[in-house]
Design a protein around this nucleic acid. Structure first.
Length: 119
DNA sequence: GGTTTGACCCGTT
DNA sequence: CAACGGGCCAAAC
């Protein structure tokens, strides 16, 4: 019998809710999300949440990048180059070094609070 | 039901 | 300044 109840009190759920609020043309970093959820070193779990992303087909996990603005390895999105095209198609600016321009595309979490609070 | 792996970031040596 | 380890949720075997 599981003594843990993964319902709404899970770290993954909070990540899903946050990533889902990321608007097109914007991106977020694992560290930013983890720090937002009060997890000092939970950046791993944020990435794990993306890898374990269940039926969250509408979850823009491709908008979540690492601290360097790079994308996930392997063919998780069909190819790193593919993810880059997806972000570029949404209006996400890129740098000459092949990384996401976090200075312009980095989504501000404070807007989520204002949005949910305003509603 | 227990152990291991998994898309990372920050602190310390 | 650079490299290595730690951290701790959830699912799969």
């Amino acid at each position: 019998m599981k003594k843990y109840k993964p319902q709404n009190t899970g770290f993954f759920v909070q990540v899903y809710a946050l990533v889902e609020q990321i608007p097109p043309g914007k991106v977020m970093t694992y560290g930013q999300i983890s720090h937002m959820l009060k997890r000092p070193h939970g950046a791993k779990f944020v990435g794990f949440a993306m890898a374990s992303a269940p039926d969250h087909a509408g979850l823009p996990c491709h908008r979540v990048v690492n601290r360097l603005g790079g994308m996930a390895p392997g063919m998780i999105f069909g190819g790193e180059a593919v993810q880059r095209e997806k972000l570029a198609a949404e209006g996400v600016p890129f740098l000459e070094n092949g990384r996401v321009d976090l200075a312009e595309a980095l989504f501000d979490p404070g807007e989520i609070k204002d949005k949910e609070k305003g509603q």
